[in-house]
Design a protein around this nucleic acid. Structure first.
Lengths: 240, 240
DNA sequence: TGACATTTCAAACACGCGTTTGAAATATCT
DNA sequence: AGATATTTCAAACGCGTGTTTGAAATGTCA
C-alpha cells in the first residue's frame, strides 16, 4: 500500500456515493420521498450537505436511483419462480406468493422495497410509470398466467383479473397496513418471520377460492404446503 | 330579512368553519397531511391564511377534526349491516363487504374517507391510535364474528384472524393501489361505479375460500349475489 | 515541482411553510 | 350612540427546506 486512502481519491468517491444510496434507501423507506430531508440523508452517510447534489444532481434523481436499485436487489435476492415444466399450477402459485411476500417483507433487505413501494402507490412520484412498466406489469402477467392455468379455462378474462387482484391484495395488506396491524394485534408479528405461515394461509385461502370459482371439487392436498422456496438464491456479484 | 349577512356575523363564522373543514377534507385526501398547506386550504375555502389557526388552533387539530368527521360521515351514510336474525352468515358477509367498499370508494363522499385512511395507514399520524380504537377494532370484531359463523367452528382463532385479513386486504387493495391500477388497466375503472361487480367477486372469492378451508362441499348458491344494500340509508340531520 | 481535475466542505441563498400579530370591520349589548 | 366582543385580514416572523457557491483539500500527470 502506498498511502492511506484520502478523502478525494476515486475509491473514497465511490464509497461516498454508496453511503448516500444506502442512507437514502433507509430514509426514503422510513419517511417517504417528500418527508425525507437531504440533510438527514447526508448526515447518516457521513457526507456533506452538498454531496447529494454533487453526486446525483438533485434529490429526485437520488430517489429514482434508490427506487431502481432496491427493486433490482429484491428481485435478485428473491426472484420469481422459474417455470420448471414438472410443477403443477398450484406449486407455481405457492412459489409466486412466497417470493412476493419475501420481496415485500424481507428483514434482510430492511423491508425497504416493500415500504418504498407502498408509499409510491399511495403517493406516486414521477417514477411510478417506469416502475409499472418494468416491474409491476410483468409480475401481473406472470400471476395472470398461473391463475389462468388454475382456472382451467373455466372463467373469463375479467374473473381472472379480479382473482389476481384478490391475491395481490392479500399479500400487500401485510405491507400497507403494518402500522394498523401492530396496534390491532400488539402481540402478533406480520413480518418475514411469519413468512411460512402467511404463505401457507394465502396459498390455501386463494387456491380454495379459485378452485371453488372454477366449479371444481376441492382436492384434498395436491398443493404441498412445503416446497423449495423459489430458486437457488445466488448473490449478485459485487461489481457493477 | 334585515340586511345581507356580513362577514363577522355568527352565521358567516359558522360558514367559514364549515368551508375550512370541506376544503381541508379535499386537500388532505388529495395530498396527505404533511404535504397539505394551510395556505391552499384557506384559498379553497375563500378564507384568510390565519383562519385555520383562529378556528381550530393549528393544522394538526384541523386534521384530527377532518378525520373524525369524514369517518363519521362514511359510517352514517354506509353503516355496517345490522344483525337481522333471519340472515345467513353468507348474507351478512356480503353486506359487510359491500358497505366496506362503499365507505372506501364512495364517489359521493369524494372517496375522502378511503383516501385519508390509506394515507393514515402508510404514514400514521398521532390520530391513528384513536382511529384504531374507535373505528377499526369494532370493524375487525364484526368481521371476526361473521367469519367464525362461516367457519362453523372448524378452524382455530389464528386461521379466523388470517381469513379476516385476507378479506380486508382484498377490499383495501382497490383503495390503496388506485394509482397503479389506473396505469396497469388504463381502460378499467375500480371505483364505486364497479361496486356491484367488486362486491360480487370479493364475496364469491372469499366465501369459496372460507368454505374450502372449513372443509365443506361448495354449496351452489346459498349466497344470493343480489341483496338489499346494507340498511335504509338515512341522511343525518344537518344540525350538530 | 507545478498545472490541472476532482471531491469535499462551511456558508449562504431563495423559497415555502405554519404561525403570530395588531389593526380594521362588524355585530351585540346597555 | 358608545363600549365591548368577535371575526377577518394583510403583513410579517421564524424556521426548515433544496440547492448553490467559492474556496480548500487532495489526487493526477507532465
Amino acid at each position: 500500500m502506498r498511502h492511506a486512502v484520502s478523502q478525494t481519491d476515486p475509491a473514497h468517491q465511490a464509497a461516498t456515493r454508496r453511503a448516500l444510496l444506502d442512507a437514502a434507501a433507509d430514509v426514503f423507506a422510513e419517511v417517504g420521498f417528500r418527508n425525507a430531508t437531504v440533510r438527514d440523508i447526508c448526515r447518516r452517510a457521513g457526507a456533506n450537505v452538498a454531496a447529494v447534489n454533487y453526486h446525483f444532481g438533485d434529490k429526485g434523481a437520488l430517489y429514482t436511483e434508490v427506487l431502481t436499485e432496491q427493486s433490482r436487489l429484491a428481485y435478485v435476492k428473491y426472484p420469481n419462480p422459474v417455470p420448471v415444466p414438472g410443477l403443477t399450477p398450484e406449486q407455481r402459485f405457492q412459489a409466486f406468493v412466497r417470493s412476493f411476500l419475501q420481496r415485500v417483507l424481507s428483514a434482510e433487505l430492511h423491508a425497504r422495497h416493500g415500504r418504498i413501494m407502498a408509499r409510491e402507490m399511495v403517493e406516486p412520484t414521477a417514477a411510478l410509470d417506469r416502475l409499472v412498466a418494468e416491474a409491476i406489469r410483468p409480475q401481473a402477467e406472470l400471476l395472470r398466467g398461473i391463475i389462468t392455468d388454475l382456472l382451467k379455462g373455466r372463467a373469463d378474462a375479467e374473473t381472472t383479473r379480479l382473482c389476481g387482484m384478490s391475491v395481490v391484495g392479500q399479500i400487500l395488506f401485510y405491507c400497507h397496513c403494518q402500522p394498523v396491524l401492530t396496534r390491532l394485534f400488539p402481540g402478533a408479528r406480520f413480518d418475514d418471520g411469519e413468512l411460512d405461515r402467511l404463505t401457507a394461509h394465502i396459498t390455501a385461502f386463494s387456491l380454495a377460492a379459485i378452485h371453488g370459482l372454477a366449479g371444481q371439487r376441492q382436492p384434498a392436498d395436491h398443493a404441498p404446503t412445503t416446497l423449495p422456496p423459489t430458486a437457488p438464491q445466488r448473490r449478485r456479484p459485487r461489481s457493477h
